[in-house]
Amino acid sequence: MGIISRAFKNIGKNWYRFGLFFVTTAFWLFFAWRATGFLNSFNIFTLLRFASVQVMVGFAQMIALSAAEMDLSVGAIGAGVAMFVGALMQLLGVPYPLAILLGMLLGATAGFVNGILVVKTKINSFVITLATSSMFSGIMFITTKAKAFTVLPQGFVDLSRVWTFGLPISPLVWIMLVVAIVLYFVYSATSLGRKILAVGANRRAAEMSGLRSSKIRITVFVLVGIVAGMAGIMDAARMESAGPIIGTEWLLTSFAVPAIGGTSISGGNVVVFGTVLGGILTGTITNGVLLMNVSNFFVNFFLGLILLLAVGFDRLQKAYRERTSVK
């Protein structure tokens, strides 16, 4: 009894941390009540599968944001890596595990290029990644002629197709969750994570306390490249096609998902599992609105609205915390 009351007391104290969970749950309950087929196992399967890619895209930007950087090339990296992996598998017959590994290395290389350019030129990452985004896309279009790779190995396609453990959960969801745990571990229990957050919170102060911020920022972009590449590979598995359309719509998602999840846009703070919930929430709204037969022209409107509400909610949280800490 004591434990339960303590748990409730903790939830009461930290209610703002559970806000997104309650909002997501409320949407699930609402759609379960109003949207035909929402709790259908097939729908749960496709919803979570879609959300898992959304979350991975959010993770990529979350890493950049944590160091007070931004990476507008996540979509281009995702598409480039997906098409590279598709080409390796379809044209060269490379086994898919090796193709995936090489794809992630390509993502890391693209991230390294971004990192080096940002650090060496001292130009804002917004401008650099805007430029490299076009360059990466251009290279991809030139080398592949924008032709999708659709003859993919069964094992690769199974990443999105099959149930796991008898549950309507695609392997992509488990991959996303493991990446979430790894990122949580990196940010909460490794010196690398703490250094990234320190640089993100105040780069000058971090440098004055002896941190080599250039190196840390390059590492951040490499991590972004790896995770964006993974997102591209996962999206290719989800669509069973490694084509240039991958990543074209990631820009808004990449910022919205971590922002909804509570990650600070100005750096120095990440909420890994908030980002997971952010991705699930955007996936849920997209799916639920479609199921409710509300004209799907409203989907974008609702997503924008929820982003505004999330940002407003975040502001309220901060005001509340400031008020309570003053007391």
Partner: peptide, 25 residues
């Protein structure tokens, strides 16, 4: 740490491809 991350993630992606337990619903 970076190399470990890349390897873990790649193994994860690859391993899940074979983790089919049941066809899609």
């Amino acid at each position: 740490i970076l190399l470990t991350l890349i390897t873990v993630m790649a193994v994860l992606l690859s391993a899940c491809g074979g983790a089919a337990t049941q066809p899609a619903p």
